[in-house]
Design a protein around this nucleic acid. Sequence first.
DNA 1: ATGGCCAATATGATTGGA
Length: 263
Amino acid sequence: MRIATWNVNSIKQRIDAARTWLAATKPDIVCLQETKCPDEAFPRLEFEGLGYNVAVHGQKAFNGVAILSKFKFDEVTSGLPGDETDDHARFIEAVISTAHGALRVVSLYLPNGNPPQTDKYGFKIGWMKRLSAYARGRLALEEPLILAGDYNVIPTTDDAKNPQVWVGDALFLPRTRDEFRTLINLGLTDAIRATSDDAGLYTFWDYQAGAWQKNNGIRIDHVLLSPQAADRLASVGIDKHVRSWEKPSDHVPVWVELDIAAK
DNA sequence: ATGGCCAATATGATTGGA
């Protein structure tokens, strides 16, 4: 089973790229972020026509997450618990039945948090603490669990072309990386780092200043696996070439292949 | 991380992104 995540930076602007990418890579489950449209405006029929079930949690103009699945959803839940005042559409969870029992998949879009001296950064750190609390509860179920999405976290200096320029940034501040390690240390596996210690594995290149041409990228889109999912990890990859397409997102897809069969 | 962008909004400027 292939599970992918992709921050599309507007689903409406990425319909053609998405269709091409889906046809080429045939993922079974896709976690999308920054869909940037309310649920009623999501191009649901486009994806249903390609054989996907569609679960959306969007809002007007900003944020927005979704999950596409070749297999039917047993359950879909939206919103990260723990803050009644959080009205951002950044979290959706779906449960799918497999030959090995329930598979739980989350599409998440963690807040950017810049500038760090504002309450935007407090919101980011609070969101990360809530994500860890959520993950702790789900890990106790001892099921395959996939936490995939745009984390807006550069975990280490190997995950940026020019780490020195990110030193004061919300994506790379010590506190941000500390919270990310806290999450990982609950028992999750960063799928990319399960297979490679290489530097230069990026998932985002800014639209500005020729960042793509200079390969001035960062790795901020992550697929985290529970032990029961990591035990079935077969392969992982970054679809870097998608960044060179016409009208690209500034992020590219990241995917895992798991030895899990649908029911 | 800027020389250079992109997307959404009732828009011709502002906000947010990373």
